[in-house]
Structure formats: structure tokens, C-alpha cells
Computed example of a mutant assay.
Amino acid sequence: MTLLKWALIALIVAVIAGIFGFSGVAEGAATVAKVLVGIFLVLALILGVLGATVYKKVT
């Protein structure tokens, strides 16, 4: 959940920077948010698959 929290913070920074006209900062923060969400999704998928396979082996 910490990874998603940082992604949300980066997204908020991007929106606020975009409102005030700092397009470079907004673009960078949006890129960081996209990367963090992508990493979260990949890790969640991997852990979900591992959890399902380990669960099947235990039961």
C-alpha cells in the first residue's frame, strides 16, 4: 500500500503543478506516478499467482 500512497502523492503533485503552469514538473510527477502504479500492478500479480500456487500446495 505504501507504493500506491507514493503514486497518489505524485499524481497530486502533478495535478497541482499542472494547475499552476509548471508543465515540466507536472510531466515528471505524472511519469513517476505511472511507473509506481505499474510496479505495484506487476508485484500484485506476481504475489497473487505465488499465493494461489502455494495455497494449492498447502491444502
Score class of each variant (00 low, 15 high):
T2H: 08
I16A: 15
G18H: 09
K34D: 02
I16E: 14
L47T: 04
A44P: 01
F22C: 04
V13F: 08
L36R: 05
V35Y: 12
V15I: 15
L4Q: 05
A7G: 08
G24D: 11
T31K: 09
L4H: 02
T53R: 08
I9S: 06
F22L: 14
V49F: 07
A29E: 05
Y55E: 06
V35H: 04
K57S: 12
I39D: 02
A29Y: 00
G18S: 10
I46C: 13
M1V: 07
L36T: 00
V32E: 03
A14N: 00
K34L: 08
V35D: 09
L11R: 15
W6C: 01
L41G: 10
L47G: 01
G24S: 14
L45D: 02
L45C: 13
I9W: 10
V37R: 05
T2Q: 08
T31R: 13
A7H: 00
L41I: 14
G51E: 11
G24V: 13
M1P: 12
V37K: 04
F22Y: 14
L8V: 06
V13I: 15
T53W: 07
K57A: 13
A33H: 00
G38W: 10
K5L: 02
E27A: 15
V15C: 05
S23F: 09
A33Y: 03
T2C: 09
A10L: 06
V49A: 14
A10W: 06
L47Q: 12
K57R: 13
V15R: 08
V37P: 02
W6V: 00
A7T: 05
K57I: 12
E27D: 12
F20N: 03
F40C: 02
S23H: 07
G24K: 04
G48K: 14
A7E: 07
A33N: 02
G21K: 03
L36M: 12
I16H: 09
L45S: 09
F20T: 11
A33E: 01
A7V: 05
I12C: 04
F22V: 11
A14W: 01
